[in-house]
Simulated scan of single mutants.
Amino acid sequence: MDRTQKVFDIIRFTAGKTLFYGASIEMPQILLDTGNYTKHTDVNFPLGHSRYGGPIVDLPPGIEYPKGLFFAAQLDLSKFSPFDKSGLLPKSGQVLFFANIRNDTGKVFYVDTPNENLIRHIKEHDDDFFSGRLVDKIFADTEKLSERIREPEDDEMDYVNKDGKIWDHTAGSEKSKIFGMFTHCQYGQDEIEKIIFSDKILLLQVGENDFNDEGVFSVLIDKTDLQNKIFDNCEFAWGQS
């Protein structure tokens, strides 16, 4: 079978409109003038609501905010698992992601704690992930490797493959999802295929569809670890052209 035609089932999600940031942070007026930013004290959402970045973190009892890392994402799996055709995700609980994108390190916590038992923490900062967005819509989707291969432009003819096509390094960067194909604009086709046809699973990709202006945040996990709910060995990547 042509591997470029393999269909991958994925769980897509989209971003809410509002960006919220730490109330004590002095935001540049040019950003405030867009009308998209608001102080975290002016937003209200339930404990455990899925989101990306920002100063508001809902932690389970007994878990502390990791030193040297920033809060990257929190997913309420009860909202995602109904769209999981693989059955690999836990049916309930929270997955929390903390990361340092400067050196591709991070930490993932999985806890099966009821949302009402989570404890809200506020950590304001002006570094990576300083602003947050809520997850809006969640839905099932599919993708194929062929979507990342395109016709060449006139000045790209020296780089075509044996079929006369071009590998599109940025294709897929707009998607935010669980599962499917790994995305990294600095990786070639062989490097990407080595990952997506291995036992590594894309646990999270947050792309450039309103969550990130530029860059793609990704977390990989071994399939066996995911099946056994072991989140200690995840791999982190930030790809930006």
Results as ranks from 00 to 15, higher is better:
M1Q: 15
F8C: 06
F20M: 03
F20W: 09
A23E: 15
A23Q: 12
I25Y: 10
E26S: 12
E26W: 09
P28N: 08
L31Y: 00
L32I: 05
D33E: 10
T34K: 09
T34N: 04
G35F: 02
T38F: 09
T38R: 11
V43N: 01
N44A: 15
H49I: 13
P55I: 11
P60C: 08
P61S: 01
G62M: 11
G62H: 12
I63S: 01
P66N: 10
G68K: 06
L69T: 06
L69H: 06
F70R: 15
Q74T: 08
D84R: 07
S86C: 02
G87K: 00
L96C: 07
N100R: 10
I101G: 07
G106L: 01
K107D: 00
V108T: 08
V108Q: 05
Y110R: 02
D112F: 01
E116A: 14
H121V: 14
I122Y: 07
I122W: 05
F129Q: 01
F129A: 05
F130Q: 12
S131E: 08
S131L: 10
R133L: 06
V135S: 05
I138W: 00
I138N: 02
A140R: 11
A140I: 08
S146V: 11
S146R: 11
E151V: 10
E153P: 10
D155R: 11
Y159H: 11
V160H: 01
K162L: 13
D163S: 06
G164T: 07
H169C: 13
A171M: 10
K177D: 08
G180N: 01
G180L: 00
D190Y: 14
I192L: 12
K194E: 13
I195W: 02
S198L: 05
K200V: 14
Q205A: 00
V206W: 08
N209C: 12
E214L: 13
G215F: 07
K223M: 06
F231G: 06
F231A: 09
N233V: 09
C234I: 08
F236K: 09
G239K: 05
Q240W: 14
